[in-house]
Design a protein around this nucleic acid. Structure first.
Length: 768
DNA sequence: TCAATCCGTATC
DNA sequence: ATACGGATTGAC
């Protein structure tokens, strides 16, 4: 430390003396690698993937060492690599390549994608010794919900671990059971998992548990010889689980990662089996209503782990992440995966990231940024509910987690699982091209699981004498009362939170607007006259400009108002609300009215007795290309929480395609229609579209500079407020890469010119 | 003829 | 961003 060498003292590294560096400057014309000289002292630490500091255009900037080279193409003089910030190679070559591919597809810069892919460094975390579990003992075992059993589980060596945990459980009698529970050979052996579980024992479970399993997982329910054979068989997996003595069943049941629930779906078992066998099936999975999807995801991941490969799974939010984390912990224990989310805070986030980066764990689950998680030998990428717009990154270049994962799967040769209750047009496109196969329940299964969906047209509402309020038709009340009487909770989905966010004319339903600025009017809860949400002026004497009506109605009634109304009509029943700041995760199997905004619906133990979908037109009338698809996605997600064959009431016109799809529980049919429509309209995913947003002159400048593909079609401009406008550029899908490239290059020309006005380029924007 | 200044361009 | 080179300008 004391001998700080001067510039002239430095000697070049003996081998590969050139470092190729991605510098952290925000200018898009500098989006390429720059070469620096590596000194002999830096030789061992200046490895691909480390953070460095370099002199660039006279100042010190951060950068990423992407690769080492024998010589440089650069004709001028090379500067020395100023400093290796940390020897930790947190950016693996395959993630750097992925980030480059994502940047290219989205017309963005590598450095911007790297900012999304690698969390900020925490020097103290890097210094924690890798073998030391103190970080884990401190409560961070990689689980989002630091589970109670984590402490015991990580205590000993692998064999003992699980026997001590939740999965070491044995139910029933017999010596065999005892052996399983005690671990026997498994616990003592080289088992990675060593899970023993037997129910209603006999000799079978013992044999299973004693098998020459690589995993040593034994689980049998009401054993029989079939079960024994499976478990003891020559399976490389050596995992046994059987229910009943039925050999057919036994054949299917190959491990704890292959549960019976997969047999409900055509190609379900084959998919999971293929994962366990190290193959790379690609599937779009439409989950049955009531499906415990976190358990299925966990099984798919466990099967992949079984094959010696890693996995990455992305879910929309923290609540889903907790559920998946729990399911995975049950199946794999707490030490074989990490849960990543931005909400963790920088220290935990970086600690978990390092565990992946160092190869200590090979399974990453998390929210959208986890799509970039450093998992080597990638076997599976999975995403739940890929239509949820939180999967789209809001920071430039706005990559979508599904696209990142698909890109990754393609280059790594990994399996793909796109799961959801609903299906996106993008997923349908993967099926249409034959790139992926569908995993769907048979019609028979659907008959057993699908809820009874009753549409209630809200145009008839006003005339419904039994409607207890202006918005709840009698069918809805009836369904709610029946469920509550049966001791079950009722879920009521209401589109927005707050109190009557907007109002419309009672007579013609025209949206009520401010006479001064045309902003939307809204009602507060104090009984005051409506006021403008934009200019805050009160609008006391409202006269509808369309029909001359003077009365107002609540256009979108907020959760709180709905809770009041419904609470009055069903007294003595507790009313819970979930949405916005306070999101409930679960509710008990008790009579309750649970009001939730879309996406915030709690899961009910045993399922809801009834689900009511209210104010649906608020979802349907959004001026967005995806409004129909989005409404259906939210309905499917809420309706899936009803108990098997429960009742769902959707207050909407039964003739709407989205309602029809819900009634028939056929998300595939809806996605097919949606895709056909997109094809007709030439919208993504059939065509490639980029939006270019900024002040008019800047947008025109960029588009004038861009060497767009020849058949590029320009749409717009569309004013988007604050002097900004938006142009759309459309090309056929096969020219998508060239479109992105031309726009990135044009942005580069502008940035080189020091153009002051910002222009945002968004490839395949989620909202159109 | 030379320094001061401006402008464009590369940044290793 | 900022640093540099070449062109331009103005004073001697």
């Amino acid at each position: 430390m004391t001998t700080r060498k001067t510039r002239s003292d430095r000697q070049p590294a003996p081998g590969l003396p050139v470092a190729r560096v991605c510098v952290d400057v925000p200018l898009s014309h500098l989006d390429r690698l720059f070469d620096y000289k590596v000194s002999a002292e830096q030789d061992s630490t200046a490895q691909p993937g480390v953070r460095v500091r370099v002199r660039f255009a006279g100042q010190l900037v951060d950068g990423w060492l992407i690769e080492r080279a024998e010589e440089s193409e650069h004709l001028g003089k090379l500067a020395w690599l100023e400093r290796v910030v940390s020897p930790e190679p947190v950016l693996r070559p395959e993630i750097a390549a992925l980030a480059r591919a994502v940047a290219d597809r989205y017309a963005g810069s590598l450095i911007d994608v790297l900012r999304l892919a690698v969390p900020p460094r925490q020097a103290a975390v890097e210094k924690e010794p890798p073998a030391d579990r103190s970080g884990l003992a401190a409560g961070d075992n990689g689980s989002a919900v630091s589970g109670g059993s984590a402490g015991e589980m990580s205590a000993g060596d692998a064999g003992q671990v699980v026997a001590a945990g939740d999965d070491g459980r044995a139910v029933g009698d017999g010596s065999a059971v005892a052996e399983v529970a005690a671990g026997g050979r498994d616990a003592a052996g080289d088992s990675a998992l060593g899970v023993g579980r037997a129910v209603s024992g006999g000799s079978t479970p013992a044999e299973i548990a004693a098998g020459d399993s690589a995993l040593g997982v034994g689980r049998a329910v009401s054993g029989g010889s079939a079960a024994a054979e499976i478990a003891a068989g020559d399976s490389a997996l050596g995992v046994g689980r059987a229910v009943g003595g039925d050999p057919a069943v036994a054949e299917i049941a190959a491990g704890p990662w292959l549960s019976f629930e997969w047999a409900r779906y055509q190609a379900g078992t084959a998919f999971v089996r293929a994962l366990a066998q190290g193959r790379e099936p690609r599937a779009v999975w439409s989950a049955l209503p009531g499906e415990e999807w976190p358990a299925r995801f966990a099984e798919a991941i466990a099967a992949t782990v079984q094959s010696g490969r890693g996995a990455v799974a992305v879910v929309p939010d923290a609540r889903d992440l907790n559920r998946l984390d729990e399911a995975l912990t049950k199946l794999l224990g707490p030490d074989r995966h990490v849960a990543l989310s931005a909400a963790l805070g920088p220290t935990k986030r970086y600690r978990r990231f390092l565990r992946l980066s160092r190869g200590e764990v090979t399974v990453a689950i998390g929210t959208r940024a986890a799509a970039f998680a450093p998992v080597g030998r990638l076997g599976l990428v999975a995403i739940w509910d890929d239509g949820d717009d939180v999967h789209a990154e809001p920071r430039a270049p706005y990559p979508h987690a599904r696209q990142v994962l698909l890109t990754r799967a393609q280059s790594a040769g990994a399996a793909v699982l796109l799961g959801g209750f609903a299906r996106t047009a993008e997923a349908q496109q993967l099926l249409a091209t034959g790139w992926a196969k569908e995993i769907v329940a048979s019609r028979d299964m659907l008959r057993d699981f699908a809820p009874e969906v009753r549409p209630a047209d809200d145009r008839q509402l006003a005339r419904d004498p039994a409607a207890a309020s202006a918005r709840l038709p009698s069918v809805a009340w009836q369904a709610a009362r029946e469920a509550v009487r049966a001791g079950e909770p009722v879920l009521i989905q209401v589109p927005r939170r707050g109190y009557v966010p907007s109002v419309s004319c009672q007579d013609c339903r025209e949206r009520a607007r401010c006479p001064h600025c045309a902003g939307p009017l809204s009602l507060g809860d104090s009984g005051a006259p409506p006021s403008c949400r934009w200019c805050a002026r009160p609008a006391a004497g409202f006269v509808c400009p369309v029909c001359g009506g003077r009365r107002l109605r609540a256009a979108v009634t907020g959760v709180r108002r709905t809770a009041e109304e419904i609470g009055r009509a069903l007294p003595d029943i507790p009313v819970w609300t979930s949405g916005g700041e306070t999101v409930l995760e679960r509710v008990a199997a008790q009579p309750a009215l649970v009001l939730a905004t879309p996406g915030a619906e709690p899961v009910a133990d045993g399922g809801y007795g009834a689900v009511l979908l209210l104010d649906t037109w608020a979802l349907l009338t959004r001026a967005d290309l995806r409004a129909g698809e989005e409404a259906a996605r939210r309905w499917f997600a809420a309706a899936a929480l009803v108990k098997p064959k429960g009742t769902v009431v959707v207050v909407a016109d039964g003739a709407l395609a989205a309602v029809q799809a819900l009634i028939r529980w056929d998300p595939g049919w809806l996605a097919e229609r949606e895709l056909a429509e997109r094809r007709e309209l030439r919208f993504p995913p059939v065509a490639a579209i980029a939006s270019v947003t900024g002040v008019a002159s800047a947008v025109n400048e960029l588009l004038g500079e861009a060497r767009l593909p020849e058949d590029a079609e320009l749409l717009g401009p569309l004013p988007v407020g604050q002097g900004q406008e938006r142009m759309l550029v459309r090309v056929r899908r096969s020219a998508g890469a060239r479109l992105a490239e031309s726009l990135h290059a044009a942005a580069g020309v502008r940035s080189a010119r020091k153009a002051a006005e910002v222009v945002r380029v968004h490839v395949d924007p989620v909202q159109l």
